[in-house]
């Protein structure tokens, strides 16, 4: 076999391998997209953050994921933030999960539907058995929704973050 033939064969092999790799990659990348059907379960994490009007305004490291929101002008009145706790909710379709927080609040959360990227949820934030806010809403996966509950000079912020599965 001549050198010319070897080069030609190697080139041919490369030309064949690239489409095969691209086709395989396309299948791999597109396969999850086909699974974006109606979601049947989801996981939500609700963070309870205490905000007070005294402090130097420093946002602690464990609240770094909320820094962008807590530095907004709407929260400028509050100078101190502290993560009280975080609770995870394992949700299945149309099943209410309730968790109680140390702040005295309790949260009911249920999954109403949606897909992998957007979840339909229902929540009831209560204190002492009384509903403070009850709402049905939709949010994208890993998006944040904040529910600050103000009481005199302090506030407890409930940050909802959910994802499918």
């Amino acid at each position: 076999m001549t050198m010319h033939a070897k080069i030609l064969a190697s080139t041919l092999a490369s030309c064949l391998a690239v489409p095969v790799a691209l086709t395989g990659a396309s299948l791999v990348l597109l396969a999850p997209a086909q699974a974006d059907a109606a979601v049947s379960d989801a996981t939500c994490r609700i963070h309870a953050v205490e905000a007070t009007e005294t402090g130097d305004g420093t946002i602690p490291k464990d609240l770094g994921f909320l820094k962008d929101q807590l530095e907004a002008p709407e929260f400028a009145r509050y100078k101190s933030f502290r993560l009280l706790e975080s609770k995870d909710f394992k949700l299945t379709l149309n099943t209410v999960v309730e968790e109680r927080f140390k702040s005295g609040h309790s949260v009911k959360l249920s999954l109403l539907g949606g897909d992998k990227d957007k979840l339909e949820l229902s929540t009831d934030l209560m204190r002492s058995g009384t509903s403070l806010v009850n709402m049905n809403f939709s949010m994208r996966s890993n998006q944040i929704v904040l529910i600050p509950v103000r009481r005199s000079d302090s506030m407890v912020i409930f940050a909802y973050q959910c994802k499918a599965g």
Binding site: D88, E99, V133, F137, N142
Partner: peptide, 24 residues
């Protein structure tokens, strides 16, 4: 229900769509 810090990545901003709400 214990928190698992590695489960959720950095949250993305975005507006939620409120279907129904009541402040009891």
């Amino acid at each position: 229900t214990k928190a698992e810090p590695e489960m959720f990545p950095q949250p993305e901003p975005g507006e939620a769509e409120i279907r129904h709400i009541s402040f009891g």
